[in-house]
Design a binder for these strands. Structure first.
Lengths: 143, 143
DNA sequence: CCTTGACCTCAAGTGGACTTGAAGTTGCAT
DNA sequence: ATGCAACTTCAAGTCCACTTGAGGTCAAGG
């Protein structure tokens, strides 16, 4: 059992952030001592997961949906598979970007945007994205 | 030479977004026909790059800084190296998250957060992040 | 010449993810 | 009993990345 400041210290999340997450249902406290929230240890793992999912680019709502806010999550396997696939796409993009950056560092071309090797590296990820955009229902056409 | 709607169609960015990016100095138009902006073809590559960098989790300001808004970017090599390294970290996190998700899909443990294999997968990325947080100057202590 | 439609500007609005501040409450040490 | 640090709530504020809307301008076609 942790109070909010202990959890904050353990997780690196500010108390206000923890309260906010609780408010939106991403984590929960199991009770109070007086006014003070009490958290179970389990919530630390949950927070790590949230943090990770955020760096993966998912919104809090998405995270909440796929985590299932309760003890017996009963997660939707196809939803999880979709998330995993989405992450794979992102990893590919990031890899391309990183390789592009590393190339630019060593490339002597006066204008990097003209360097054919650079362009090829970048185009890989771009093409992938446009395909995705085409069939996405949650990202509608947007203009 | 493209006008804004052609560029929009080619890039998948809404016209308002393109105008916004121009306003903040991420892209530029090379002139006007009447009122209408004219863009060079080169800007498409630039936009792809911006898009990529965003999915990597960089803010527009960061992107602008490391792209150098002009033709002769004169990029700071150490800044680029830092970005590339940051992307590597993110890739590791994403890989852990993806593996975690895929594991959960096949894991029969009643509570996934208790599954030791899952916890191990997640902890890898978490540890990495906390180390980073500790020495980051741009991410001060935050609470 | 005049209309039309695609563009323009500029200010204000939106949504997500928090943070901040004011005012109240509580367990614990003195 | 009293003080006070550490919590609490709730409303409002902030920052980023855009979008929306009102009102204006231009050039090409009829």
């Amino acid at each position: 059992m942790l109070d909010i400041s202990e959890l904050s210290r353990a997780s690196g999340f500010s108390p206000s952030k923890l309260r906010y997450y609780e408010e939106v249902g991403l984590i929960r406290s199991v009770g109070r001592r007086g006014l003070k929230r009490l958290y179970e240890d389990e919530v630390k793992t949950r927070i790590s997961l949230i943090s990770l999912a955020q760096t993966a680019g998912f919104s809090l709502v998405e995270i909440k949906e796929t985590m299932g806010s309760e003890g017996r999550p009963d997660l939707d396997r196809t939803a999880l598979a979709a998330k995993a696939d989405a992450i794979d796409v992102r990893i590919k993009e990031l890899t391309a970007l990183r390789d592009g950056l590393r190339h630019v560092m060593n490339c002597t071309a006066e204008n990097h945007l003209d360097c054919p090797r650079f362009q090829r590296i970048i185009r890989v990820a771009l093409t992938k994205k446009q395909v995705d955009a085409k069939r996405s229902k949650k990202n509608p056409i947007k203009w």
